[in-house]
């Protein structure tokens, strides 16, 4: 599987573990709930760690843990739920997170440009070329 990262198509190096899947070595991401419950083991595991959050999770609860994280995935279940845009803003601008922020799930390819403007730098999607193309839709903006 491939993803877009920093405007480039690259191979995906991350595996998402469902809440009941056993911990494995390597780059893994887990749900916000699992992260809250098993923080110590997860941080200690052999490999990088990511967290998958939904629009209802409060990103402020992640602030203290951000130095341990290499990835935050913003999981869209509905493209119309714009809270993820503010979550990305908080992570990147307010909390200074420097790792990967990846959009996943059912967002629209045509939202990728706005997402990139609020701090998302990676995209997982079925239609990667279409998504990648939209990243250059605008060369100017006001904000």
């Amino acid at each position: 599987m491939q993803v877009i990262k920093n405007q480039q198509l690259i191979d995906n190096h991350w595996t998402f573990l469902t809440d009941d899947a056993p911990l494995v070595a390597g780059n893994i991401s887990v749900s916000f709930a699992r992260f809250q419950q098993e923080k110590a083991q997860l941080v200690a595991h052999n490999g990088n760690l990511g967290v998958r959050i939904s629009p209802t999770n409060a990103v402020s609860e992640l602030v203290a843990d951000l130095p341990q994280l290499a990835l935050v995935e913003l999981d869209f279940s509905d493209f119309a739920d714009g809270r993820s845009f503010s979550q990305a803003y908080f992570l990147r601008n307010r909390y200074g997170f420097e790792g990967e922020i990846r959009a996943i799930g059912s967002y629209l390819a045509d939202q990728a440009f706005y997402l990139s403007r609020v701090g998302v730098n990676a995209f997982s999607a079925d239609n990667l070329p279409q998504t990648q193309a939209t990243l250059n839709d605008f060369t100017v903006f006001y904000q």
Binding site: D81, Y89, Y114, L115, V118, Y142, Q143
Partner: peptide, 14 residues
Amino acid sequence: RQWTTLHPEFDYLP
């Protein structure tokens, strides 16, 4: 007008 136009964070409001 300029600030609201294509504001990346607030285009998918409730």
